[in-house]
Amino acid sequence: MLKIIDRYIIKKYLGTFSFMLILLSIVVLVIDVQQKIPRIENAQAIDPKLNLSYFLIHFYPFWIINLVVTFLSILVFISVIYFTSRMANNTEIVAVISSGASFHRFARPYLVTSLFIAGISLIVNHFVLPWANIKKNELEAYTYNATNKEKVLGTAPVSAQLSRNEYIFINSWNKREKRGSGFVFQKFDKNRKLTYELKSSDVYWDNKKKQFVLNNYLEKTVNKDDSEKLGNSYEVRKSYGHAPDELFPNELLGQNKTTPELLKFIQREKEKGNSNLNTYLNELYQRTSMPVSIVILTFLALSLSSQKKRGGLGINLAIGISMAFIFVFSFEALKVVSENKSLSPGLAMWFPNLVFLPLAAYLYWKRANQ
């Protein structure tokens, strides 16, 4: 009998969740395309191939993967509230409990299904989503407004710390063309004294040979006796270990890396002395904290909706949507706080779970003992 009920609940869980996932994807896709058509038309003016059809094939499928992963725990939460409230209103839950099954036994298929979804989400977050983000982020900037688009594709000063004693500065660097002007490379000794400096009026990245090409350069070597050796020429090629996207990373870089790659990148930046890593650490911790929230929110939703209430399904959905909004808002707000270095990334990305876990545990314990 209970195994039949288990299959029934799992089918309800996955069926409702799948329906809401498909519905959300279609609705949000239609709204987003309508909003971004003017920006896509502007992109087409720059490159004729960047038309709406191109975006629908090469951008939006990967954008939807990112969207689903972002709102997965909320979709689970609302889905559980919806189908469990219907079961409660139809007195199905009362019938199961009255047959002699404990509430803990009734909750078992919820646990199994939430762990199944969380496990898939964990794999997707750490390995599949970065691949989708690479595809998405190639065109993402073209869907931004003019100001944000300029930050990603436009020209701006950039800098990089290659090691604790080596630095690169470029006065004007175009991220899309990978070309700039006002290049400076500096190397210091352990006493922070300048030992070598290389300046160039123009610089560009040779993608085939994986080198920076410096034009009209001037180099200066400072000897131990403070004497200087100068040199100059028309062109020199330099390799600084990484491509421009790695040396001058933007906020999207962390999204493009699988977790092993992201861990290596963070470790490398730490060894170089880079302390501005909270954006990438947020990305790393969120990949695990979000799947864990699926299990927590499943039991929170079960506890809130497994009892028949005055107001029925409507009041349960209202409570669920309100709590879902609080959950999503807290993640985004804490991400900003962490990026401003007011809170550690680990605590910021796990804080919503740390708040909702005891709430879910208390409500579940209270419901199980009624």
Rank of each mutant, 00 (worst) to 15 (best):
F62C: 09
Q186F: 11
V128W: 15
N90C: 09
V184P: 01
R179E: 13
R192A: 15
A318W: 06
L56V: 08
P109C: 09
F188K: 06
V213C: 05
T258C: 08
N276F: 11
D47S: 15
L284I: 02
E271V: 10
S293I: 01
K36S: 09
F55S: 06
T70W: 05
V337K: 04
S159Q: 14
I326F: 05
G314S: 15
E261A: 12
V355I: 12
S99F: 04
D189Q: 09
S338L: 00
Y217M: 00
M290F: 12
L29F: 11
L72R: 03
N90D: 15
S181Q: 14
Y217E: 03
L50A: 09
S85V: 04
M349K: 04
M87K: 07
M323R: 00
G311R: 08
V80A: 01
G311N: 05
I81N: 05
N250Q: 14
P260L: 11
A43V: 04
F248R: 08
A360H: 00
K238F: 08
F325E: 01
A45L: 12
M87A: 10
N207K: 14
Y285N: 04
T195V: 15
N369M: 14
A107P: 05
G154F: 03
S98W: 10
V203Q: 06
S73V: 02
L359E: 01
Y196T: 00
L363K: 02
E228L: 01
S322W: 02
E41K: 10
N51P: 07
K210N: 14
F185M: 02
N207G: 07
L230H: 09
A348S: 11
N232W: 09
I321R: 01
K36N: 13
R7M: 05
A156L: 13
L359H: 02
N174P: 04
V203G: 06
P61D: 10
I31P: 05
G180H: 06
W205G: 04
L253C: 06
Y240A: 10
I266R: 04
N66Y: 15
L218C: 08
S85G: 07
S99Q: 04
S99Y: 07
L347H: 08
Q370I: 14
D226H: 15
K209E: 14
Y204V: 07
V96W: 10
L304V: 10
S114D: 04
F71L: 15
S25R: 02
R192N: 15
R164I: 10
L129V: 10
K238I: 08
I134K: 13
K193W: 08
E166N: 12
